[in-house]
Write a protein that binds this DNA or RNA. Structure first.
Lengths: 123, 123
DNA sequence: GCCGTATTCAACCTTATGGTTGAAAAAGGC
DNA sequence: GCCTTTTTCAACCATAAGGTTGAATACGGC
């Protein structure tokens, strides 16, 4: 499957169990069994989660006897951070400029209502 | 459906079309029709994508005649960035300390192999 | 060589997701 | 009042995702 890197990373982190796994791996490497311990699900399910994380490049596994310690690869976070920050900055820059325009606007010109909002969240 | 905020945000950004929409909205607000233009898919599909983004709090829609301009809500990015940076920093901190330990380790002590790696990425 | 432990593979089930088409709703233009 | 434009709703379809159980594989301990 040819999924682009960012998609796999975001998708991997969209699951709360996998985010929790990442959080725990940030503290220390751990084996599949150890990781599976606190969750309700089977070890197999956690193994699947780890494969998703591995395919996204977020973790790697080594071999140590029968155990296969899982290790967090924090560098991949950069890809995400860069993407996010890029558009966040771009958007913020745009609002700043909009504010400038509004501030410089002469009084007789009717500005478009400054983004009226209305989320429609409550359905 | 009671999906937690971070899950909806990451999940929303896991789709390349939706990321592209976000990228374009960072430049300027746009209507559903305008947004749908460059893609192969139907307007309805884009409308669905926008609902996903809206449920994640990433965009909001106002009303302006029949048009419903879509607006990027960049603040939500913070939630992600905070999550990411927290664990990235934690992980990096850990490696820094590990390096210290290894450096301070007396020669007669056999250290555990310093994370042998072996991504297994190539499947 | 056999046993136990750790992990993965395979087959299967259920639900979510992204897409489609076709109809309905909302609001202005005349 | 009707037509047009923009957007959403509804029903449907195919496939991916997350979970299960049960069997297979990989190693180290004796």
């Amino acid at each position: 499957m040819t999924t682009d890197p960012l998609s796999s990373i975001f998708s991997a982190l969209a699951d709360p169990t996998r985010r929790d796994i990442v959080a725990r791996l940030a503290v220390a490497d751990a084996t599949v069994n150890e990781l599976a311990q606190p969750y309700e699900v089977t070890v197999q399910a956690v193994s699947k989660h780890l494969r998703v994380l591995e395919n996204a490049g977020l973790v790697s596994r080594s071999r140590e006897a029968q155990r296969r310690p899982v290790h967090l690869e924090a560098e991949v976070f950069d890809l995400m951070t860069k993407w996010i920050e890029r558009y966040r900055r771009q958007a913020e820059e745009r609002y700043r400029r909009l504010d400038d325009v509004l501030r410089a606007m002469p009084d007789d010109v009717e500005p478009r209502p400054p983004r009226p909002r209305q989320t429609g969240a409550g359905r």
